[in-house]
Each structure stands twice: as C-alpha cells, then as structure tokens.
Nucleic acid binder design. Structure first.
Lengths: 208, 208
DNA sequence: TAGATTGTTAATCGATTAACAATC
DNA sequence: TAGATTGTTAATCGATTAACAATC
C-alpha cells in the first residue's frame, strides 16, 4: 500500500465505490465500464477513472473493469484484507449499539472489549466482548493488538480518555464525541460529529 | 434565512464554528478576532471571514466579533432557534441510542416517537417517546409536525421505509443506513455512513 | 489620532471535468 | 479490423488564501 498524498476527497469516495461494487458482485455482474458505474453512482465517469488511477490501472481498454477484481483491489487499498481489533471506550447506549453492529464484524472490525467507569456495566458482556474498568485500558490495548479505539464517552471525558489512549500503542481513534481531539500525527482520528451532522440537516430545512 | 448557493464546504463548517463559539460563551469571553479564532480552530483567519461574510457582516473593524452575538446569529442560520420534531424509524440499539442523546434534546431536536415492526419493542417507551408500529408512521408525521425522520433500520429495509416516508410531509431524512437514498429535491438527506467512516480510518492506518 | 481588524477583491491552489490518443 | 473504453493530459471550475483599502 502506501501511496502518500492521495487527496482526502478521493479517500472519502473509496468506501462508496466499494459499496456499489459489492452490490454488483452480489448481483453477479462480471464487468462494468466507468460510464455505467457513473450512471449508477451519480458521479462523472471521468472522476471514477481519475480516482482509481491514483492507485493503479485496474481496467482494460475496450472492456472496462472486472467487478470482482476491482472490488477486491479497493478492499485491499482500504485495508479490509486485515482484521482490525477494536475497543470501545464508553459503554453507554451508543457504545453498546456500535458493539452490536453486525456489518462491522463482517468486515473484520472485531470488538474485543468495552471500557467504562460505571460499576453497573463493568463485568457484563456485550456481544461476546467484556466490559472492563477503564483502568485496564492501556494494558489491554497493548496486549491484544488493538488498532482502533472508539470514543463514545460524554464530551467532558473526551480529553482525559484521549490522553490515556495516547499512552498506549493505539493507531487510530474513531471519535464520536463532539470535540476535536489533539493527537500526534502517528495517530489517525476520524470524527463522527453527530450533532454537527444534525445541524447541517437543520440548515438545509431552514434555508429553503 | 435562505441565501441560496452557499457552498457545501461552508455549511459543513458552520456547526464547528458554532461549537467553538459556544465554548467561548461558556468561558465568558466577550469578543474574538478572526485571527484568535483561527489559532484555536486551526483554520485560516481568511477562511473564517470569508465563510461568515456569506451570511452578512457580523464583525466590526478594529474590534473583531462579539462572541455571544455571533454565536446566536450562527444558531439562527443553522435553524436552531426553531424546535425540530423528530421520529426515529428503526427502534434497534442505534435508534434507541439516538433517542437518548441528551445533546439533541438540548438543541431543540425532540424525539416524538420511534417506529418498528418488532412486536417486542412496540408499546414500550424510550425516554418519554412511544415505540409505535410502522403502519402508523405517515399519519403520525403529518399530524405531529415532524420535520426529520431518522433512518436506523437495517440496510435491506431502507428503500421501503424511504418510499413510505415520501408519502408523508417529511422535510428531511437523517440516514444511518449504508445505502444512498433516492428522494425528490424538496426532501433533504444527510448521510451518516458509519461503515464508510470506519473504512476511511482503516485506510489511514493501512496507508502509513 | 493611531492601531487593529474587518469586509472584500485579487491571486493561488487544488479538484473536477473534458478531451483524446493509446490499446484491448 | 472496428468499436469500445481505458489511462492520462489539458482545460475549467470552485474553493482557499493572500492582500489591502475601508473603517471602527
């Protein structure tokens, strides 16, 4: 892997390509041209070809793209050929919901444990994963080959948990708190700012 | 409200400005310059001024911006001075989690009911909102002044529920299914594609 | 008044789209 | 071979940044 300087805009579109190609695989479609895919996805054929050619030439002139091959290649680019072990910090309603998401497990994102400070939930079990006290977090990450920490604590706890995570070997934080995290650049952060998203929706309603 | 053709990039940034200004209000900071805000938010001062001036001149030369005033104005732009009534379609773990999110209620997004087809949850009560059968959905939306439908059903149910929603007066759909919805242009859609987001994180880990 | 900082125009940069030669 | 469609270069479009005159 590892072409650097692929633009963020391209990376954001990759999972969407992967999704549509997955549907085509399910439908047992064998080949597709950028033009046909363009119609399905509502993006220009030009953009599709440009995007893919950031990672290499996956097509063939006069033929198009082999669906299954392209699907697998994009999967590899996205790192989906590897298992990613996950911990969820904050075993509230949202954390529990994420631990139970079947589509994550199906793609190789495996929740190994949840962490909380609430004694009522510590010791219980979510979809096979134990809920542990947050004191055990750093050790657990380092000893269980954990890639990704999901941050589903209340906003006020975000910074404290983050500085704890930074003491471990964590590679990435999936941040559901409505706060921007400050991390060194060898740690990736992907934000899911739900309230921001809802406000955008409110804007579009309001501005009609 | 209602300047048309504000770019999507600007709209995406508005909630973030709102968030930072909210913190400044809490800290009882009275005024701030685009330069200071730029340092805090890690965006250019130029961008801040450009963004705000899409909606009017909120600042004053030589002084900067009054924090509280700007906060309120952005709130109005985002439509947060109005109550938005919400229904959640799909009363699974994720739907329940969203119904319980305190920050939504605090901003005037009020969950009025949840809908499902599972008899085990129908009749129950989530944070004061009833769980009803999906057959009652259209009528409920039209009679209860519902703006926003949250879609937290499994992927396979997405299209069916969407076509049901389009029979109602719904204004916006907050889509948590991993599917792109097809709606007429008087209905707004905001996607939260969690699996896509997780895949992006996987990409950044993989491409180091 | 002098200093600070906005609002806004102009310059730059990057991303998207169009075009087309290469080639299967 | 002729037709189709890619990979890629060039043109366009839009968004970001820089600069500065206006003005509080």
């Amino acid at each position: 892997m590892a072409d650097r300087d692929i633009s963020q805009a391209v990376i954001r579109r990759l999972p969407r390509y992967y999704r549509y190609l997955g549907e085509l695989v399910d439908d047992e479609i064998e080949r597709i041209s950028s033009g046909e895919l363009s119609d399905k996805m509502n993006v220009t054929a030009s953009q599709i070809r440009q995007d893919l050619n950031n990672f290499g030439g996956f097509g063939q002139q006069g033929y198009g793209y082999n669906v299954k091959y392209l699907y697998n290649e994009i999967g590899k680019i996205l790192g989906l050929d590897n298992i990613h072990n996950i911990v969820i910090v904050g075993a509230g309603k949202l954390g529990m919901a994420i631990a139970n998401f079947p589509s994550f497990n199906n793609r190789g994102f495996i929740t190994k444990a949840l962490f909380d400070i609430n004694k009522d939930v510590i010791g219980s079990n979510v979809h096979g994963a134990p809920v542990l006290h947050i004191d055990a977090l750093v050790k657990f990450i380092n000893e269980n080959d954990i890639d990704i920490a999901v941050l589903t604590v209340p906003r006020q706890g975000a910074d404290e948990v983050t500085s704890l995570l930074l003491k471990s070997n964590i590679k990435a934080i999936w941040n559901f708190t409505n706060k921007d995290l400050v991390v060194p650049e060898n740690v990736s952060v992907e934000n899911v700012h739900l309230l921001d998203s809802l406000m955008q929706l409110s804007y579009t309603i309001t501005s009609r």
